[in-house]
Design a binder for these strands. Structure first.
Length: 508
RNA sequence: GCCGCGUUGGUCAAUCGGUUAAGACGCCUCCCUUUCACGGAGGAAUGACGAGUUCGACUCUCGUACGUGGUACCA
């Protein structure tokens, strides 16, 4: 009988907000749901230097928007609370001390200056970054080198200290990654990582292990950048006596910059003009707002769809997936090993597909606030629905609805007169003047009557239809775009149509 | 520097020793539409390099190159 699956998302205050972080959450969620397990949200709020006000709520909001709802977490209490690291401080310390007790960790009293001096003194071209490890720890101020009485004396004097793991010598640390298979590391190459900081807060290394154990996590997903420190975590599970409970690891491939190389970062979004956050992120420290996919007009369905396909593939040609379909199709075996470059064009394509497949009424609900917020008088919901039916599929982002539909509500602010003028003639002038009269005498104003009226007059005047439709369109919408002209004329009504024609005629 | 991980078109990617090496985005051409999109048809474009194993290698092994991550009292 297998234990039920429990995955978690433990976002860092800043990193967890990026595309890569949301994808980690998504994969963790998909995997858990696929196996009828639960998904736990754990919040790292211990780092005072980087954590910002509102980050926790922001993470919850992003996940909620995506439809990834945690079963347990700060806002969904489960059996393993608390879920905020700041509220678990004592727990971590207890285990750190247990490790010291068993000889797998030790106190280190070195000041930052002393550490820097050591690194400076030992630095050489062949070893640019000396480590705190077996080769150096006997020269430092720690409980391994110091006599027992000296250590106790320092502790009693309340000299600041950290607790470091004592890496073993000449051991090969092996573990299995669900994506990459067996991974080996030599213990000599890993340094004595700090587990408990001087302020008594745990480092990530201690926190993940303790939390994953206590919260009974069975499968741990994280970014590939954690691979180098995995041996520390493996050893911790071992030293704490929890070998039997260690989760299975999956180190997800990185999401890389579209141009050049390197991990995708917030700056790339600013620089290249696309979002890297799920939702608008206001940083109170810099007083800056970074735009998110949501606010730019992406649908949550499209967002998780494109994110899921960045590093995973079903093996079939299907590319459009709902969350439920992703849950059904997802498998770790098909997660890629290599990093993927983010492609904003493809991201927009996903959104466009989702808009095209969306019911008009649903689109209308999303479009209404966008128009209203920009000061557009939408007349009535019935009218809006007709407009939306005509322009929905022309929107790549939901926000495009404004540019695509504004001429249905207002006389175009700018009219491309030049395009009309270059092919203008007296005959056309006469045609449009007579058209006004014909429209006026029209008893019914509908698609068929408008079209017949227009075409009849064109035939009468012996002018090609195309020569007339182009200027007509520009008169009504301001430029060469939009759905069928007669559809537009029908919707905006006789009065508006006549008025727009007159306005432009006067300008020519 | 050292260590880890990776490498199929510009991008996302299928292939799990035998294929004319899928498909999608983007790009180009044509059709449709007398606008612009949508839609349809077509096109250009890919196995980093070198050895080895094998009847046969994109696929397995090794080396090289390149990329990327780590090397903090950051995550």
């Amino acid at each position: 009988m297998s234990q039920s699956v429990r995955t978690r998302f433990a976002p860092s205050p800043t990193g967890g907000l990026h595309l890569g972080g949301v994808r980690t959450a998504l994969y963790s969620y998909l995997f858990a749901k696929k196996h009828n397990g639960s998904f736990v949200l754990r919040v790292e709020d211990t780092d005072q230097t980087r954590f910002v006000e509102g980050a926790e709520q922001y993470i919850v909001d992003c996940l909620t928007w995506c439809g990834i709802i945690p079963d347990e977490g700060p806002h969904h209490p489960g059996d393993y609370a608390p879920y905020r690291q700041s509220e678990r401080k004592e727990i971590y310390k207890q285990y750190a001390l247990q490790l010291v007790e068993s000889g797998h960790a030790y106190y280190a009293f070195d000041t930052p200056e002393e550490l820097e001096k050591m690194r400076e003194d030992l630095k050489s071209p062949s070893n640019p970054s000396p480590q705190y490890d077996a080769s150096t720890r006997m020269h430092m101020k720690n409980s391994i080198r110091l006599l027992k009485e000296e250590t106790e004396s320092l502790l009693q004097q309340n000299i600041p200290y950290v607790i470091r793991i004592k890496m073993p010598e000449n051991e090969t640390i092996t573990f299995t990654d669900m994506i990459r298979g067996e991974i080996k590391n030599e213990s000599n190459l890993v340094d004595d990582k700090v587990l408990l900081k001087a302020d008594c807060m745990p480092t990530y290394h201690l926190a993940v292990v303790v939390d994953d154990y206590l919260m009974k996590i069975t499968h741990a997903f994280r970014g590939e950048e954690w691979l180098p420190s995995a041996p520390v975590h493996i050893l911790l599970w071992h030293y704490l006596g929890w070998d039997q409970h260690m989760p299975q690891w999956a180190h997800l491939p990185l999401i890389l910059k579209p141009d050049g190389h390197g991990k995708l970062s917030k700056r790339d979004g600013d620089r290249l003009g696309f979002p890297v956050f799920a939702m608008d992120w206001y940083d109170p420290k810099t007083n800056e707002t970074t735009h998110g996919f949501k606010e730019l007009g992406f649908l949550p369905e499209a967002f998780i769809n494109l994110l899921a396909l960045l590093g995973w593939n079903s093996g079939e040609e299907k590319e459009i997936f709902t969350l439920d379909e992703l849950v059904a199709s997802f498998s770790m075996e098909r997660v890629h090993k290599g990093g993927a470059k983010f492609d904003y064009e493809k991201a927009k394509w996903f959104n466009h597909e989702w808009i095209k497949h969306m019911p008009i009424t649903h689109f209308e609900i999303l479009a209404k606030p966008i128009l209203v917020n920009r000061g557009v008088d939408i007349m009535s919901d019935e009218y809006l629905e007709k407009v939306v039916a005509l322009i929905k599929d022309r929107c790549t982002l939901i926000n495009d609805v404004y540019e695509q539909s504004i001429y249905f509500f207002q006389t175009p602010a700018k009219v491309d007169l030049e395009s009309i003028q270059t092919k203008w003639s007296d005959e056309k002038n006469i045609f449009f003047n007579e058209l006004l009269n014909s429209f006026d005498s029209l008893s019914e104003w509908n698609l068929a009557s408008i079209e017949t009226c227009f075409k009849t007059l064109a035939t009468e005047k012996n002018i090609k239809l195309g020569e007339l439709q182009a200027p007509f369109r520009i008169m009504l919408v301001g430029g060469k775009f939009g759905p069928g002209v007669f559809n537009i004329a029908e919707l905006i009504g006789k009065e508006n149509t006549v008025e727009r024609i007159k306005t432009v005629l006067n300008l020519l």
